[in-house]
Computed example of a mutant assay.
Amino acid sequence: MTAHITGTREDWLAARLELLEAEKELTRRSDALAQRRQALPWVRVDKDYRLETDEGTASLVDLFRGRSQLLVYHFMFGPDFAAGCPSCSMIADGFNGFAVHLANHDVMLWAVSRAPLAKLQAYKRRMGWTFPWASSFAGDFNADFNVWFTEEQQREGDVDYNYRREAAFVWRPGQEGGGEGAEAKIAAMCGTDTATFHRDRPGMSAFVLEDGAVYHTYSTYARGLDGLWGAYQWLDRAPRGRNETGVWWRRHDEYDKPEKSVGAPCCGRTGT
Rank of each mutant, 00 (worst) to 15 (best):
E152I: 00
T245I: 03
K47G: 14
S87L: 09
R50S: 09
D160M: 12
M204E: 08
A82L: 13
W234E: 09
R65K: 13
V147L: 10
R223H: 15
D54H: 03
E152L: 05
D253Q: 14
A58Q: 14
T53L: 00
D106G: 06
P79F: 12
A115P: 14
V61Y: 06
L13N: 04
Y215H: 12
Q153E: 15
L19I: 07
A187S: 04
C85Q: 07
W171Q: 08
M76D: 02
R155D: 06
P79M: 11
T245V: 03
F95Q: 01
D140T: 13
L235F: 11
E176Y: 13
T220H: 01
G227I: 07
I5Y: 00
G230E: 15
E21C: 02
G227R: 10
L102E: 10
T2R: 13
K119F: 01
C88G: 03
G230W: 14
R172N: 10
P79N: 11
Y161T: 04
A3S: 15
Q38D: 14
A264Q: 15
F75I: 03
P258N: 07
N162A: 15
L40G: 00
Y163I: 01
T57E: 08
Q154R: 12
F98H: 12
D253G: 04
A188W: 04
G271T: 11
S219W: 14
G178D: 05
F145M: 02
A99E: 07
D144E: 07
Y232V: 06
C190L: 09
V208C: 08
A143L: 11
V61I: 07
A168E: 14
N162S: 13
Y123W: 11
D80I: 03
